[in-house]
Each structure stands twice: as C-alpha cells, then as structure tokens.
C-alpha cells in the first residue's frame, strides 16, 4: 500500500455540518423577499431605489471600513446585504436617497465595524441607523405614504399612521370608538399590508411567512418572536379592556412583526440560551407596549429592541447554564460572564 499524495492530518472532528454563516444570511435574505415584494406592490418602484441605495451603501461601507482597518474583507458573508435590506424596510418610501445612504454608513461603519464587525456590535446596526435618522431628520422619517399612492398619483402626506390613530383613542379613554374610525385600515387591509408605514413593516402575512421559513430552516428559534409578540398581546389585551380588535391592530400595526421576527432575533445582539431569549423577548414586548401606550411617540419597537440589546450581556450572565454535573447551587460562586 503506497499513497501518491500526502494526507491531511487535522484535529477531530473530521466532518462538518453543511450549515454555513453565509448560508444563514442567505436564508434571512430569502425570508425577507415576500415582504419586499409586498413593499413594491404597495409603495411602487421607489422601493427598489431605496433598497438599492441602502444595500449598495452598506456593501461599500463594509468594504472600505474593512480595508481602512486592514482587516480581511467580509462582503462574502452577506451580512451587509441583510443589514441593508432591513434598514430599507425601516424607512418611509419617500425618504431622500442621500438620507438612506447616511443611515447605511452609520449602520455599517459606526455601529458594526467600529466595534469589531460581525458578531461584535452590541446593538442592531439597522435599528440604530433608523433611530439616528429619526432623530436627525424627524420630518422625512415621519412622512408616511398611503398604500397604492404611487399608482393613484397621490402625493406623500404627513398622515397619522394607524398606530398613531389608535394611540389617540387610547389617550382620550375612548378606545371602544376606534373601530371604523375615519381613515383607519380594516383588519384585512392590515393583514395584507394595505396601510401606510415604513417599507417592509406593512405586510403582516409576508413577514409571518418569512418568519415561518426561518423557523423551519432552523435559523431562528421561536423563543424571541413568540415571547415578544405574546407579551405585547397580553399587555394590549389588558389595556384594551379585553378588546381583541385593539390587540390585533397593535400586533399587525407599526413594526412589531418586522422587529420581533427579523430584528430582535439578530444573533449578535440577542442572548444565546433559550432562557435568555425568553427574558429578552418579554423585555422587548413590555417596553414596546409601554412606549406605545404611554410614550410621546406612536411606535416603540426600535427603542425597545435597542434597550434590550444593551442588556444582553447581563441577561447572558444570569442565564448561562452551569457545566454538566455541577451541583445546583453553590454559595459564593461567581457567575460565568463575558
């Protein structure tokens, strides 16, 4: 027995699963496609331009940031594409393109690469960019276009979103009157996405389909979306005095589904263990509900997720399991932390 070639000698294990980080990002991109198509249908071809700018700028920012820091290029992992698409989904369709570009640079350079790139940023890049844009350009970031306005030739208007309308009813203590109110979309319209809002958040059914795909593919666990949405539902049920229609508007309104399925589940900025995920999801849900009900802004998803992102290291410290066989409780033992 002679061998012509040299053998590879490497440490075990000698087989690897077929799951790759790039594949995971590709799955997320696939999961975003239904909501993307819905956005094009409701808000017209400008969706393509906004998304092209955010994705393009994210890729360029990632490329030059890595280059400037003399680190290996990471365009191939597709994470910059995911950030770009999710950022676009968080913008109103009428956003000036240069603002979308600035948001992308903030997301990739400031939030992601300044902290070490993929896996190291402590808050969600797309969400942080959305918040920076909202604070910097409040008017452009709250100009909501009605669905099909592009087809009907209607101008963008600074109109109240369904959530804002809902909140005014809640604030005036007359929530029983909100159903059928002037300009409020029906629940069916909410489900299919025929309402004003940011690009990717409007179509509930498309987001749910994407979420289902990610769960089936094993990319995300149900823990965060379930506890997040569930917590909002419970609090809204209490706030709405048992009115399920009120709850339904809250679940499908604003960016809750987009946030709970695609942003709160971001690996880098959410806990690793199931216990941690549950605490994280409940925290996001609680903050979202409180901001929506009592805050000065109609929407609270972005801030809730960002606040919980910051708490992740602490949640992790509390929920990291003890190594196998370690006695349940040992006095004075230090927790394993980061």
């Amino acid at each position: 027995m002679t061998l012509d070639k040299k053998l590879t000698v490497s440490a075990s294990p000698h087989i690897r699963s077929s799951v790759t980080s790039t594949g995971i990002m590709l799955d997320v991109i696939l999961a975003l496609i239904p909501a993307f198509f819905a956005a094009v249908i409701f808000f017209g071809p400008r969706v393509l331009a906004v998304t092209a700018v955010t994705v393009g700028t994210c890729l360029l920012s990632e490329y030059f940031a890595r280059k400037a820091m003399k680190r290996p290029g990471t365009l191939g992992d597709l994470s910059a594409v995911v950030t770009g698409v999710i950022l676009a989904f968080n913008l109103p369709v009428s956003i000036p393109l240069w603002m979308a570009g600035i948001g992308s640079v903030v997301a990739i350079v400031v939030v992601k690469q300044f902290f070490g790139g993929i896996g190291m940023n402590f808050v969600n890049p797309a969400l942080m960019a959305r918040i920076v844009l909202t604070v910097s350009f409040p008017s452009a970031m709250s100009t909501w276009t009605s669905a099909f306005a592009w087809r009907d030739g209607v101008e963008a208007v600074t109109s109240a979103s369904p959530l804002a309308q809902l909140n005014s009813f809640f604030a005036s203590g007359s929530i029983e009157n909100f159903a059928g109110a002037q300009g409020l979309p029906t629940l069916t319209q909410m489900f299919f996405g025929q309402r004003s809002g940011s690009l990717g958040e409007v179509c509930a059914v498309a987001l749910l389909l994407g979420g289902l795909f990610l769960i089936i593919r094993g990319v995300i666990s149900v823990a965060i979306p379930f506890t997040y949405i569930g917590t909002v539902a419970v609090i809204m049920l209490i706030a709405g005095k048992g009115d399920f229609t009120f709850v339904a508007y809250h679940l499908m309104g604003g960016g809750l589904l987009l946030g709970a399925i695609f942003m709160a589940t971001d690996y880098t900025t959410s806990p690793v263990n199931v216990k941690g995920k549950i605490i994280f999801g409940i925290g996001c849900g609680f903050l979202t509900a409180v901001i929506r009900l009592f805050g000065s802004m109609p929407e609270g998803v972005s801030f809730s997720i960002i606040i919980m992102n910051v708490l992740v290291p602490h949640i992790e410290r509390l929920t990291t399991p003890k190594p196998f066989g370690t006695p349940k409780k040992v006095r004075g033992e230090k927790a394993v932390g980061q």
């Binding site: 690897r16 980080s21 993929i118 896996g119 263990n273």
Partner: peptide, 14 residues
C-alpha cells in the same frame, strides 16, 4: 472534503 473557511463568530449559539 467539505472545507469551511474560518470566519468570525456570528454568535448564533449553535
């Protein structure tokens, strides 16, 4: 042979 190029941890928790 399945070569997986080593990349940064994405904190997926697997």
């Amino acid at each position: 042979r399945r070569v997986k190029r080593e990349m940064d941890c994405i904190r997926c928790g697997r």
